[in-house]
């Protein structure tokens, strides 16, 4: 269970998060939507301490984590797997080493066990046979999937996905959606997924949260989201150029 209260963060002169409250219950997948630049990635980074809030609190499994120092974060972070928006693969390492990295760092597994789990994770994201390539030799979508394999290989309790299906073809994207669902159902993983892909959001999400103006502007189940008559949410999920979201920007 993750609880976020009153989260505020200013970056440069911009108030990116301005009092965000979100509950992320165990075993659920919460999808975060919102326009480009509203602070979705910034929010995910706060959950694992890569950025520190100016105000507000974050509790992970009842422990208050936001005041922790860098070294104290390490055990908390090991409960998490994170897929970065740009994959953030270690470019000096081969795919295999990238995916094996979290396992090796944690220790306690034999070389053989690591190999088995890495190959399994790679096959889950449809990348069997790419383990000896370097990140620079992969396509954008392949990199993303290696990032996903690295995030899930340690079987973390919480998974943070920053745009898991962006840049993938529709078929591969749906494979990833299925994988996210399967992780939730078989391992009871709690997921927070940031996405612009509404088909994916409705498929994988138990709840949808829309960030707007630095706050959780809207929150609801899939049905509630689809049925809402809030003009801002409607414009976003139907993807219209005309509406309150864009009218504000044009002024």
């Amino acid at each position: 269970m993750i609880q976020v209260r009153g989260l505020k963060k200013r970056l440069r002169s911009q108030q990116v998060l301005n009092g965000l409250d979100i509950d992320l219950p165990d075993g659920h997948t919460v999808v975060i939507i919102g326009q480009s630049g509203t602070g979705k990635s910034v929010f995910l980074k706060h959950l694992i301490g890569l950025m520190r809030p100016d105000a507000g609190s974050i509790h992970v499994d009842g422990e208050r984590v936001d005041p922790l120092r860098e070294r104290e974060w390490a055990p908390v972070r090991r409960k998490f797997g994170m897929l970065f928006q740009g994959a953030a693969l270690f470019d000096s390492m081969r795919v295999f080493e990238n995916v094996a990295f979290p396992l090796r760092e944690r220790g306690g597994l034999t070389v053989e066990q690591i190999r088995e789990r890495v190959m399994h994770a790679l096959s889950l994201v449809d990348l069997d046979g790419s383990e000896d390539k370097y990140p620079a030799e992969l396509s954008g979508g392949m990199r993303k999937r290696v990032g996903l394999a690295r995030a899930i290989v340690g079987e973390p309790k919480y998974l943070l996905y920053d745009e898991p299906t962006t840049g993938l073809d529709p078929v591969t994207a749906d494979t990833i959606n299925e994988l996210i669902l399967r992780l939730r159902d078989s391992l009871r993983v709690t997921s927070i997924a940031v996405t612009h892909d509404m088909a994916s959001a409705f498929k994988i999400g138990d709840r949808i949260v829309m960030l707007y103006g630095g706050k959780n502007y809207f929150e609801g189940t899939i049905e509630e989201t689809k049925a809402t008559d809030d003009p801002i949410v409607r414009q976003f999920i139907t993807g219209q150029a005309e509406g309150p979201l864009t009218a504000k920007n044009r002024r």
Binding site: L50, A74, R78, A88, L89, D91, S92, E105
Partner: peptide, 21 residues
Amino acid sequence: AELGTMKVTEQIDALRSLGVH
């Protein structure tokens, strides 16, 4: 140059996210 590239491509954040200082 190597650490700088790791920083701007979020590889240092990725290390931290995996609990490695």
